[in-house]
Structure formats: C-alpha cells, structure tokens
C-alpha cells in the first residue's frame, strides 16, 4: 500500500498526461523562461487530453505513481474542438471512483493550462507535489487511526 511503502519526507513521483497544443506548449514556455519548479513530475505527451483513457490513470496508480495530473486546453480552446470535453467527462467519474479503490482524491487532478501560461504550469506542478504530500500524511494518519481500532482493520 502506498502509504506504507513510502518513507517519511519522500519525494512523490507524479505522472502528467499533457496535451501537445496547450499545456505542453506552456511547459516549454516555462522552460524557455527558466521558471523553476520541483523535479517530481514526469511528462507524458499526448496530442489531446481527449486521448487520455481512464485506464492509463488507473494503470499509473497500480504501477506506483504517487500522483497523476491530466492537463489540457481550456474549455472552448481545444485544438481538436471537443477532446477536452471528453477528458472532463471521463475524469469526472474517475475522480469519484478512485477513492473507492483506496486512492486519495488529492492524488489526482484534472486541470487546464493554456499555451501562454508557463508560470501557471510550473505552479501547478509545485502545488500538485504539495497536494500529494498532504494526501500521504492524511492516509498515514488514517492508517495509524485504524491500527488503534482492532475490529475495523482489514
């Protein structure tokens, strides 16, 4: 289990599925502008956030990702017209399902970042790292709490 395998003060590893036309451009812009951010994210480039299958995200968590980020174009701006709407629809129900598989919802995020928002990209990575660390502390606390109630542990 995630919370048991990680040590205190570990560095979360975050997988980010980002779309080529908006968020990837923003990430490039952050690079060109030398905006610094935490090295925890691993970018997987897709052409459109609509390509992101919910099974990718579940797979990532299964393989040990601490956090997963999906980032695409703002509503109305999708390079392929409506891909980001499909992404939103899928991620909305996935977000509700993940806690039922024991994944703290703070470990997952769907966001929109446009190509000119280099700073916003960098900040979103930093804030995701914080968020995942918070999730870890929450889960750890919950496990500790459960250890103290004999009948409730599984």
């Amino acid at each position: 289990m995630w919370a048991e395998e990680r040590e205190e003060n570990f560095e979360p590893k975050i997988i980010a599925f980002i779309c080529n036309w908006c968020t990837y451009a923003a990430a490039d812009l952050a690079g060109v502008s030398r905006i610094q951010y935490l090295p925890n994210v691993r970018i997987i480039r897709v052409m459109c956030s609509g390509r992101v299958d919910p099974s990718f995200i579940v797979r990532a968590f299964l393989e040990g990702a601490d956090g997963v980020l999906v980032s695409g174009c703002w509503p109305g701006d999708c390079h392929y017209v409506s891909g980001n709407e499909e992404a939103k629809r899928r991620m909305d129900f996935l977000e509700k399902i993940l806690p039922m598989a024991g994944i703290n919802p703070k470990r997952f995020k769907l966001q929109w970042v446009s190509a000119s928002e280099g700073k916003a990209w960098a900040e979103s990575v930093d804030s995701m790292v914080e968020q995942v660390k918070t999730a870890y502390i929450e889960d750890k606390k919950k496990l500790e709490g459960l250890k103290n109630i004999p009948a409730a542990t599984a």
Binding site: M47, G50, R51, H79, S82, G83
Partner: peptide
Amino acid sequence: KGCGACAA
C-alpha cells in the same frame, strides 16, 4: 486528425 478521442 489523430486526436485519439475515439481510441480512449
């Protein structure tokens, strides 16, 4: 256009 929404 290769967006992949169908594949997902």
